[in-house]
Computed example of a mutant assay.
Amino acid sequence: MYNKRVIGKQYEDKAKDFLVEKDFVIAEQNFKCRTGEIDIIAWNKNYLVFVEVKYRSTKGMGLPEEAVNFYKQKKITETARYYMHKKGISVETPCRFDVVSILGEDIQLISNAFEAV
C-alpha cells in the first residue's frame, strides 16, 4: 500500500543521514507550528540551516526541487522565524535555506536554495 507519510518519513530519514555525513548537526526534525513545518533544522559550520526535503521517484512530475515554489518558501521562512524566536536564537545568527532533492535513489544537496521571503 502506498502511504505518502510513510514514504516521506523514509526519505526524510535518508536526507538526515546524508546531511550528517556532510557534517551537519541535526537540531530538530519535523518542526511544526501554526505557520508550517520544516523537515530538518541543523547546524552546518556557523549556519543555522532550514532544510526542505523533496522526493520524486521519476522526473515525470518534474524535478523534486521545483516543488519548493514561492508559496512553500514563504511558509518555510515564516516557520523559521518562529523557530528562532521560540528558541531564543538571535536574528544576527547566520541562516540559510537548503533543499535536499531526492530523485529515485540520487540525493543532492542544494545549499542556499532560496533567500528568506
Rank of each mutant, 00 (worst) to 15 (best):
T93M: 13
Y83K: 11
T77K: 05
S111K: 09
Q73S: 12
F97H: 07
Q73R: 15
S90D: 14
I89R: 05
S101I: 03
V117W: 05
N69E: 02
F114S: 01
V117S: 09
V117Q: 09
K87Y: 08
Q108N: 00
I89E: 09
F70N: 13
L109H: 04
V99L: 13
E52M: 03
Y55C: 06
M84Y: 02
K72G: 00
R96D: 03
I107R: 09
K54W: 04
K72T: 10
R81I: 11
Y83W: 14
C95H: 01
G62F: 12
S57R: 15
G62D: 10
A80H: 01
S90E: 13
R56G: 05
R56T: 10
E115D: 10
N69M: 00
G104W: 02
K86R: 10
V99R: 11
S57Y: 14
H85P: 00
A113H: 15
Q108S: 04
S101P: 03
Q73D: 12
Y83N: 08
E92S: 14
I89C: 08
G60T: 09
Y71F: 13
Y82F: 06
E78P: 02
Y83V: 05
G104D: 10
S57L: 15
Q108E: 08
V53Q: 02
D106K: 15
I107N: 12
Y83G: 08
N69G: 00
D106T: 14
R96F: 10
R81W: 11
M61Y: 06
K74W: 01
K59M: 08
R56Q: 15
G60V: 03
V99Q: 09
S111A: 07
V100C: 02
A116P: 12
Y83C: 09
D106Y: 08
F114M: 04
A67Y: 06
